[in-house]
């Protein structure tokens, strides 16, 4: 009964590492995509504002 339980630390660290890496990548990816979309949106809005509605084609892509 006094036998100590096994440690298995590599599994413990692997599990935590996977969780944190995935969460971090997911959050970073979303924030990167949001920023680039936001930038594109701002550019588009700016160019639309300057040419007042006629030149909306340059924002695509």
């Amino acid at each position: 009964m006094t036998e100590l339980p096994p440690t298995n630390l590599p599994y413990l660290f692997a599990a935590f590492a996977v969780v944190w890496v995935v969460f971090f990548i997911y959050a970073a990816y979303m924030s990167w995509r949001r920023q680039s979309a936001q930038r594109e949106l701002d550019e588009m809005r700016e160019s639309n504002g300057q040419e007042s509605g006629s030149g909306g084609n340059d924002g695509g892509g």
């Binding site: 969460f23 997911y26 959050a27 979303m30 924030s31 995509r33 949001r34 979309a37 936001q38 594109e40 949106l41 588009m44 809005r45 639309n48 509605g53 006629s54 909306g56 084609n57 924002g59 695509g60």
Partner: peptide, 27 residues
């Protein structure tokens, strides 16, 4: 909750962007 809000916000911006693109293309 943070991830969910971030994702909703991303969807919102992307929706607006694609709407703008559509409008730009139909001009």
């Amino acid at each position: 909750t943070y991830l969910l809000l971030e994702r909703v916000a991303l969807r919102g911006i992307e929706d607006r962007l694609s709407q703008l693109r559509r409008e730009g293309n139909t001009d």
